[in-house]
Design a protein around this nucleic acid. Structure first.
Lengths: 191, 191
DNA sequence: AAATCCACTTGCCATAAGACAAGAAACTAC
DNA sequence: GTAGTTTCTTGTCTTATGGCAAGTGGATTT
């Protein structure tokens, strides 16, 4: 099944709605290092990732960039809050590898979003899913140790470990690349 | 204006709807130390806080309890995800002081929630507001230092500093009570 | 009033984590 | 090929943070 069919599966979207929406999409390519969205911009679109890896990040109070999330294949690169509340983004979204994505042009998106009732609902569902995931992550940052979080990431999203430099994974886990390197050494020793 | 009128202000709730909803509420008292919701329970109701202070917390991987949030007067003590998704809570909600709250009995809530269209919308608005706040907090935990976060809390929610023991505020800020004590000392020295 | 309990501060010490830097290995470019 | 990046590891050293414990001051109880 295509990326888009997968992403637009929703009880309130009929196959015809889905087709209408899918047909409004156009292919977009990003080169490694390209920005999909920058801090202070208002998100006007989102991207369905078919191939590649994207990371979101912010700068901490010491100027280090801290990874806040990864978006892999068959996932959506979307700043839910910026897009649906029309407020400036607080994060940067940058391609870690060359990427192939699909996106709806702003105009079509706005028309469809307001005319197809289920599309609206689909947006709300994304909002609620985002809340769920963010909460989970917040809790896991507290209740799990860095090495546990690493092991979880390794088992649930192995492709990230393959495609992302260590330093970005480290900051995602809340530690430095040095510490992560030592955690990995420790894990090898254990097995 | 009463707590309830304040909380149920919403463009899609007519004054009559609001009255219907408000009349379904009953007063609930909590003693200091009482639990409003415990981990692994599915939230069946939420509480409109008229007087007192509530805190939510989880246990970290070393067994320390970590404050995840405070709920003050005129605010809602609600686990949005547990309530609307009907899944077990991950946090504990506990009264830090004696509290006076309002709550709808489960039955009435379910009936009104599904029959008053705007009530439904009100629930969604809370979901989206929760996402916004959680994101803000996540970002501030990264982009601000502990002492900056303390200063922000002090200026935005001074009543929390009055009503909560230092150790709970400290864990909310991501540090120990010892460290917070030193930060406060430093801030006094500065001024 | 004495005895407890908590909340908070503060000093001392231990330690986990980060800063820094060097070096190996892989990859890219010319 | 060689030079230049970038990634990752690893050693040493430093430091911020936490653990522990003592001590003060308030509040509460008996």
């Amino acid at each position: 099944m295509s990326v888009l069919k997968r992403i637009y599966q929703h009880p309130l979207l009929s196959p015809e709605d889905v087709n209408t929406i899918i047909n409004a999409h156009e292919k977009v390519h990003f080169k490694k290092g390209d920005y999909l969205l920058k801090k202070d911009q208002i998100a006007k679109k989102y991207f369905c990732v078919e191939k590649g890896l994207i990371r979101s990040y912010v700068y901490d109070y010491e100027g280090n960039d801290i990874t806040t999330g990864f978006v892999g294949e068959n996932e959506l690169a979307i700043d839910v809050i910026s897009l649906f509340h029309e407020i400036p983004a607080v994060e940067y979204f940058q391609a870690l590898t060359d990427c192939e994505c699909y996106s709806i042009p702003l105009n079509d998106f706005q028309i469809l979003y307001h005319s197809i009732k289920g599309f609206n609902e689909w947006g709300r569902a994304w909002m609620s899913g985002s809340l769920f995931e963010l909460k989970q992550r917040t809790i896991s940052m507290i209740t799990e140790s860095a090495s546990e979080r690493y092991k979880t990431l390794r088992s649930k999203h192995p492709q990230i470990l393959q495609q992302s430099p260590l330093k970005y994974i480290a900051s995602y886990l809340g530690i430095t690349d040095t510490s992560l390197s030592r955690i990995r050494k420790e894990l090898v020793r254990e097995s």
